[in-house]
Amino acid sequence: MKGVLFLPRTIFIGGAITALFLLAALLSFIWTPHDVTGVAIAQKLRPPFGDFILGTDHFGRDLLSMVMVGARVSLAVALVAVGIGMGLGVPLGLAAAARPNAWWSDAIMRLNDLIFAFPALVIAILITASFGASALNAIIAIGIFNIPVFARLSRGAALALWQREFILSARVCGKSDLRISAEHILPNIANILIVQGTIQFSLGILAEAGLSYVGLGAQPPLPSWGRMLADAQTMVSFAPHLALVPGLAIVLAVLGLNLLGDGLRDVMDPRLKERQA
């Protein structure tokens, strides 16, 4: 086993940033520096680094507190969307790979192609038009978009594995396709699924911010990073910190997850491993 010290630095940096945001989001449930619901016009539009570390918005709300509460929405939406994508996409991909000649295998992949034609924004527009805007829409829209990503990835990797001789050996021993998928295929593609999971997590944060920004995601009074940016837009010329703070929060969160994903890939990439062996 490799010592912890030899792990890529990106894992530590990315992991620390990600953990910071997760903790901030959790902490916001029990404590924030200031109240985010109350309006205090007297202290509106304070610049950062004064009484309020990140300044206040046009209602006098503390931006740091809002970023903390906003992290809840962003992280929860993106995380649940990854769960939807993995939970549905991976079994579909594994099934399609186990029986590549079955008619439904083809149907699964066609369905995937079809979903790819609907960017998350388009799905969100459709759902919002029918059912009204909410954070749940964002979860569903991004989650649906994640399904074909994981289905294609797991199918491709599984197809390559099914040709490997250790799978043929397992079949000779009479193991069922389901059992082989669970016992041999899934553990061997878990690496790339985890790496892709962190990437989709970060993409989900970006997508949620975009949806909230145009009003298709989380609704007031729930603060979210995208909505904070939308509110900031008209005031950006005289209070740039309103745009900078939530924007930097998004960049930092996404950057952290991407670094974590890169680091994990460096550690787990089977190609790198075989080169070392």
Partner: peptide, 8 residues
Amino acid sequence: GVAVPNFW
């Protein structure tokens, strides 16, 4: 660049 939301 990958981490920056384009609208921001």
